[in-house]
């Protein structure tokens, strides 16, 4: 089988990812409370890291994979910052 066949199958999967990102962004914008928005951005970024790895294969430029690692690490930092802020407010600091 030709490798371009598998690439075509992945090309059909890309619009599904785009729809998922749109829905995550809608929840991140709408989110009634702050943890909702942060959770939506968090999940969206982890999925985005996966999508970036797939795109770096499709673009045939391997250097692009480094962005996925950095994004997954720093979004976790955003999570911890917001959690720390909410908890410190409860302690009455």
């Amino acid at each position: 089988m030709d490798p371009s066949l598998f690439v075509n199958v992945i090309l059909y999967a890309i619009p599904i990812y785009l729809t998922a990102f749109t829905l995550y962004a809608v929840r991140a914008v709408k989110g009634p409370t702050i943890p909702d928005s942060v959770l939506a951005i968090d999940s969206m970024s982890y999925d985005l890291a996966a999508f970036m790895a797939i795109l770096s294969i499709l673009f045939k430029s391997p250097i692009l994979i480094a962005v996925a690692i950095v994004l997954a690490l720093w979004i976790f930092a955003l999570d911890i910052y917001v959690a720390k802020y909410l908890e410190s407010r409860e302690m009455g600091e």
Binding site: I34, S37, Y85
Partner: peptide, 16 residues
């Protein structure tokens, strides 16, 4: 705080 969260969303979009 909500403004910071929106700003993080904008940063993620710019990264893409």
């Amino acid at each position: 705080i909500r403004a910071v969260v929106y700003s993080a969303l904008q940063s993620t979009a710019y990264t893409i």
